[in-house]
């Protein structure tokens, strides 16, 4: 059932986002060809300005639309009238929430890939075809050097951390929407206030934990250890581990709040 739900998420996103991807990538190829074949002065007139402006607007629109859809799909599909359909499906509430989160995550990753594809296509259009092979070799060597210096594992860890931080932000938004949905009116306002309220709670919790750490001497131990290890692999591993643990805790807390409110306190209009 989860895969079917994600499949419908892909369709719902794709019908809006894919045309934007196609337009951005197509225009980037045309711009690349223009860079290669048109004289430089072609870009100083109004036509060139219009093309560059359209391209910039498309990129911004794609990014904004991806972000908007991540939130809107959750709100419209679960908390508005479509909620009557979704909460009548023979699946658990946790499956519905997970499908929304995974759908948003997949489209965020696809957005990154589309960005890379846009730049690549523009470069392919801009350079003579015989140079493409050489450019690809250069990129490959640069990647090899990067992996040699930082290690493939480091790349994977930072990717994982980026994904986790995105998931934290997403689940905080979902929790805020679920809290705002408890209001009988002005639910969007309630959700916005809930989001900032959660931020305040996070700061308070961080302050309390820090104070506990100071009083128990744990923070001092960590600081002296960090100073000793500064810049070393152990220091970096500590930062990464702390970020992963913090992210996982927040994801679990926000997921639990969202599940409880949608399963036990659902308040469809």
């Amino acid at each position: 059932m989860l895969t079917k739900l994600i499949g419908y998420e892909m369709k719902a996103f794709g019908r809006i986002i894919l045309p934007l991807y196609a337009a951005t990538i197509g225009l980037s190829f045309l711009i690349g060809l223009g860079i290669r074949f048109l004289p430089e002065k072609a870009y100083t007139n109004w036509v060139g300005g219009l093309v560059i402006t359209t391209f910039s607007v498309l990129i911004v629109a794609t990014m904004v639309m991806t972000a908007v859809l991540c939130v809107q799909r959750f709100y419209q599909n679960l908390l508005a009238n479509e909620g009557y359909l979704m909460f009548s499906l023979p699946v658990g509430t946790h499956t519905l929430i997970l499908s929304k989160a995974l759908g948003a995550l997949i489209w965020a990753l696809l957005g990154c890939l589309a960005g890379i594809a846009t730049m690549t296509v523009m470069a392919l259009g801009a350079m003579p075809f015989r140079e493409i092979g050489r450019a690809l070799r250069d990129i490959s060597m640069a990647l090899n050097r990067l992996f040699l210096r930082d290690g493939l594992v480091q790349c994977l860890i930072w990717t994982l951390i980026a994904v986790l931080l995105f998931a934290v932000m997403l689940m905080q938004i979902y929790a805020a929407l679920a809290i705002g949905h408890q209001w009988t009116a002005h639910r969007i306002l309630g959700s916005v206030l809930a989001y900032f309220g959660i931020d305040i709670l996070k700061s308070v919790a961080a302050g309390i934990l820090t104070n506990i750490g100071v009083y128990t001497g744990f923070i001092g131990l960590l600081v002296s250890q960090a100073e000793a290890d500064a810049g070393s692999a152990a220091w970096m591993a500590g930062v990464q581990t702390a970020t992963v643990i913090q992210s996982l805790v927040l994801i679990v807390v926000f997921s639990a709040v969202t599940w409880f409110l949608l399963d036990r306190r659902l308040n469809l209009e």
């Binding site: 719902a12 599909n77 479509e82 009557y84 359909l85 499906l89 023979p90 699946v91 658990g92």
Partner: peptide, 21 residues
């Protein structure tokens, strides 16, 4: 009521509930 009962219950709410798109 839960996921299991929704397999045997067919529900028509009092409003438009199907995805418009």
């Amino acid at each position: 009521p839960g996921a299991e009962t929704k397999e045997i219950v067919s529900y028509l709410p009092d409003r438009d509930f199907l995805p418009g798109w």
